[in-house]
């Protein structure tokens, strides 16, 4: 079974479980791993923060959960469709595709993207699949500049030859291949303004480093890219 088939089957099983509960006249429930700080464990071997075993139950009969429950199912169904057809959507697209008025009401299934985004993470943790495996991606966020060449889908991109703007970092960086890395260290900068200023001053050239801007809190693509550069290129 390919990973893609595995994802489809997990999504289907998730739905069938709920259907079985309804059929048996039981209250449909889903168990979502808690993502609070009290359920985060640092794994020293992989050097990664991982979720613990604590779970909370989302229950359709509890009015506080009812809408979220329905929204989670809609997201899962949409993802299954995406994976089935081998298409990718951004999380914003997903929100717009699912947003519609509920029959006979003036209420929408989703009122804002802030309602759908956390539920996507819920789905990932619940099923043990990555967002990208659900064929969802976030918008590009963050920039990388410096003496590193990245190979993406057959193209070789030299990040030192992109002027002052650098390379925009997408949410999926797993397929990147690195070559020609000539830097003493990587400098990760939170603010875009400071990054631009340092580029202007040619800091990365003068100090022989790679610079990355996270533009606010680091998105997943940036974090994974930093992690990969750190673990894969550190020895060189």
């Amino acid at each position: 079974m390919t990973r893609r088939e595995e994802v489809i089957s997990r999504l289907g099983a998730f739905g069938d479980e709920l259907l079985e509960e309804i059929r048996k006249n039981e209250v449909p429930k889903m168990k979502v791993p808690q993502r609070g700080l009290n359920n985060v464990v640092f794994n020293p071997s992989t050097y990664i923060l991982e979720l613990g075993d604590k779970k909370s139950t989302r229950n359709y009969m509890n009015l506080a959960h009812t809408k979220k429950f329905m929204q989670s199912v809609l997201i899962a169904a949409k993802c299954k469709e995406l994976v089935d057809r081998d298409k990718t959507a951004s999380i914003r697209e997903l929100y717009y595709q699912l947003k519609h008025a509920i029959a006979e009401t003036k209420e929408n299934t989703f009122e804002g993207q802030d309602e759908s985004d956390p539920l996507i993470v819920d789905l990932e943790t619940m099923l043990g699949v990555l967002r990208e495996e659900l064929h969802l991606k976030a918008d590009d966020k963050g920039t990388i500049i410096g003496k590193i060449t990245i190979e993406d889908s057959g193209d070789k991109i030299d990040c030192s030859k992109l002027g002052r703007s650098g390379l925009a970092i997408p949410s999926i960086v797993e397929h990147y291949k690195f070559s020609d890395v000539k830097a003493d260290y990587v400098l990760v900068i939170e603010t875009a303004a400071m990054f631009d200023r340092l580029v202007e001053e040619k800091y990365h050239i003068n100090n022989n480093c790679i610079m990355m801007a996270t533009k606010g809190q680091a998105a997943r693509g940036i974090r994974r890219l930093v992690h990969r550069i750190n673990t894969e290129l550190n020895s060189q």
């Binding site: 289907g12 069938d16 259907l19 009969m61 809609l74 299954k80 509920i102 209420e107």
Partner: peptide
């Protein structure tokens, strides 16, 4: 409220299930 979201839930589940 339970019934209101019920139609959406049912349609979602129907699409989600492999059967």
């Amino acid at each position: 409220m339970l019934l209101k979201y019920g139609t959406e839930l049912a349609e979602g589940l129907s699409r989600l299930s492999g059967k």
